[in-house]
Design a protein around this nucleic acid. Structure first.
Lengths: 112, 112
DNA sequence: CGGTCATGTAAGCAACTCCTTAATTAAGGA
DNA sequence: TCCTTAATTAAGGAGTTGCTTACATGACCG
């Protein structure tokens, strides 16, 4: 599970972490602010943040004794691409076109 | 981690399982067919399929001694919704509108 | 300097993941 | 009936996750 996409999906697989990301959509927050809604210890929060950071979904900047966390949405692009490519009729058609384009270009990439 | 969305993201967090779902896009397959590209034992494959089934991403139907697996994309809709809501400028604006609509309706749901 | 606030690290634990090999179930064919 | 094929269940092991409490670090403040 070293690839980035797996790290992102795994980070999203926990409701606490998803709630933290949702909170961060309304702006940067300190660890304490992120911890506040949850009945878990601070170290547990630190560990969740480590998972999010490893997935590239947050960035932490230290200022004095406060660590500010900000959302990074770029990793979600790859996740979105995967999900969209695998659902629904519309995307199947889109993907067939995509495959044909790739075949024209001669790349054998099958994008699992 | 009992909620459906977490089960889906967790199912997607493994490259082998994602590859299996990709394979299923081109039609139903037996367990043996799904196992073929991977250097893992059959029981390991069965266990991956159990995870996918628990997340609602595949359906298994027995015919004779062959179990046919088919893709179910519905669970990906919820996953897609979450990811899209959390990425990019476009979606932020869309979501602000969404929030205002909800506020008008008087529901307090914050959709973590 | 000493205290306190915000956070991180260390260590430990129960539960889960992902894999294995061995045994089991169940269908079909000689 | 016996053998093969397809798949699952059972049992176990190494590694990971998600939490805990206890301790450490590091900045500001009297």
């Amino acid at each position: 599970m070293t690839d980035q996409l797996s790290l992102v999906f795994q980070a999203l697989a926990d409701p606490t972490r998803r709630a933290m990301l949702s909170r961060l959509r309304s702006g940067a927050a300190t660890v304490g602010e992120l911890a506040e809604p949850f009945a878990i210890s601070r170290p547990a929060v630190s560990q969740h943040l480590k998972v999010l950071e490893r997935a590239g979904l947050i960035e932490r900047t230290a200022q004095a004794q406060w660590r500010s966390c900000t959302l990074r949405t770029e990793p979600l692009d790859e996740a979105s691409e995967w999900v969209e490519r695998h659902r629904g009729e519309w995307n199947e058609r889109f993907d067939l076109l995509d495959e044909q384009l790739r075949r024209l270009k001669g790349t054998g990439d099958d994008r699992a």
